[in-house]
Nucleic acid binder design. Structure first.
Lengths: 123, 123
DNA sequence: CTGTATCCGACACGATACTG
DNA sequence: CAGTATCGTGTCGGATACAG
């Protein structure tokens, strides 16, 4: 017997409804990976994430800081130095991220194949 | 000893770089959950996903179909009937989705707390 | 160096009307 | 019923210039 659908996929009582917004951020995962084995400076992060503008990287870092995923430490020096570090809470995301990574590794070829087949059928 | 950062987080050779786009879709996960225990019609899906317009739901379904996550079956009847079903490939996403769900369940309270603390500090 | 301010274009999305 | 077409709006994000 098939269950009826839930009435409301956006029910605030269901924490999963927040998943797309909470851990679905486009660049947050990359930042966390970059911080995995030690604090990094803003300019250090800009290198591997060169496709993201300074503005968006800043916004991403602020959001991660606000949510307790990373910490921001500004040193009173000239020139200024700021270091971002992942928090314990931030590290708790790694298992879920690893699950996503493992999925991509295993099934991306199948997805490519499905896309090719779909393009074929559409043509 | 700390590893140097990767040079390019967007390296196409790394399947993980596709994760934000492949499984980071805002509504795809909800659709798959809705299809978990049987095929559903378009209008059935609209109910729990009432915040998503027909246009966007259609786009989401098309993308999922293109990627081989769901199948679309149109019956030649009047009035028309179309059924969407999850594929075996689509089901392979569930473990990763479950990992995200479990994370949200466990750590969302900590995030809320971090947000409150951040708001406090900013005030 | 680590950002912020401003402008602007592209695109995502909803609302509405319409079709087979 | 299951969409598509069109339009208007809002947000995302890059580029550039500038500040502390």
């Amino acid at each position: 017997m098939r269950e009826p659908l839930p009435r409301d996929m956006f029910d605030p009582a269901c924490p999963s409804s927040m998943v797309p917004f909470q851990i679905g951020d486009k660049w947050a995962g990359m930042v966390l990976v970059c911080l995995a084995d030690g604090p990094r400076r803003f300019s250090e992060l800009r290198v591997p994430m060169y496709r993201v503008s300074a503005k968006v990287l800043t916004e991403t870092l602020r959001a991660l800081e606000r949510d307790g995923m990373i910490s921001r430490t500004a040193y009173d020096e000239i020139p200024p130095r700021v270091e971002y570090a992942i928090t314990d809470l931030g590290r708790t995301l790694f298992p879920a991220m690893e699950a996503c990574r493992a999925w991509a590794l295993e099934y991306l070829p199948a997805v490519e194949q499905a896309r090719a087949s779909y393009a074929q059928r559409s043509a």
